[in-house]
Amino acid sequence: MNELGQVLRAWRERLTPEAVGIPHNSPRRVAGLRRGELAMLAGISVEYVERLEQGRSLTPSPQVCTAIARVLRLSDDEQAHLMRLAGHAAGPDRIPVLIPANLHRLMEQLAVNPLAVYSAAWQLLHWNPLFAATFGDPSSTDDDGRNLVLSQFGPGPGRMRLTKDERDAFEGSLVSDLRATTSRYPSDPALVALVTKLRRLPRFLSLWAQPTVGDLQSARKIVVHPLVGEIALESSVLTIQPADLRLVVFLPRPDTDARSKLDLAATVGLQQWV
């Protein structure tokens, strides 16, 4: 067992099931969470938790680290330690991926809406169940599929429906925001690799050639859900400082049936519909 495995096991064993809302009546050999309970709450497999604790998997992604930190109620310092052990070193030249505890508390208050947290490179770090139910489950995709810029300019249609003007405005704003990020973190290797991939995509490349710099703007969107139909939403983008994260909250558009459709999507959850 390496240091990563040791601290994960220690953090798991110090947290009681009651603290995370798991009732239990039978005696336990240890007071803390079981591996299966951590896996269920973090959205990962029991086998993966076992590999991490035994030192057989050394590089969990930032998304997995964030999920584990949330479940285990890690402090900001502990989460930073976890990120370092997992190979996601923090520094002035690296894009931050640590979600502070106060942001998790804010998201709990906003959980009636789909929401997600992205890094400054628009890498999806955290999402709530209603986001997954509305837009599709991000855990079923790889890291490239969880990058908003790559998925927007890639071939997949997704569930978002935009007019040409809406698409042009959204993509232009997204590229302008990414350009601002490259000026703040010019030496971040993951960001350099991301831009290299994106430059192979003609639509991105034409926008990248323009000098516009700015933040991603809030926008109206139509989500086409496979069961509940069209959901009219308005995205609000909040920049979280000093963490340099993006909290995106999707609000039901006024004077539409979006609220009731979101409630239905929440009830349906992640069921697969043909």
Rank of each mutant, 00 (worst) to 15 (best):
L41E: 01
A42S: 13
E47F: 09
Y48H: 14
V49P: 00
E50W: 10
R56F: 08
L58K: 14
S61W: 06
S61R: 03
Q63C: 06
V64C: 02
C65S: 04
A67N: 13
R70L: 08
R70C: 08
R70G: 06
R70E: 14
V71M: 02
V71T: 13
L72H: 03
L72R: 02
R73I: 06
R73D: 12
L74G: 01
L74H: 06
L74D: 05
D76F: 05
E78W: 06
M83V: 04
M83E: 04
G87Y: 07
A89Y: 12
A89I: 13
R94V: 12
R94H: 11
R94Q: 11
P96H: 04
P96R: 04
P96W: 01
V97D: 00
I99M: 03
A101R: 14
M107H: 03
E108H: 09
E108C: 08
L110T: 06
A111Q: 14
A111V: 09
V112L: 10
V112D: 12
V117N: 02
S119H: 02
A120K: 01
A120M: 09
A121E: 06
W122C: 03
H126S: 13
W127K: 02
N128D: 05
F131Y: 15
F131M: 06
A133F: 01
F135I: 02
G136A: 06
P138M: 04
S140N: 14
S140I: 08
S140P: 05
T141G: 09
T141Q: 13
L148A: 13
V149G: 00
S151Y: 14
Q152G: 05
G154V: 07
P155Y: 11
P157R: 13
R159L: 10
R159N: 09
M160I: 12
M160N: 12
M160R: 15
T163E: 12
E166R: 02
R167M: 11
D168Y: 12
A169M: 10
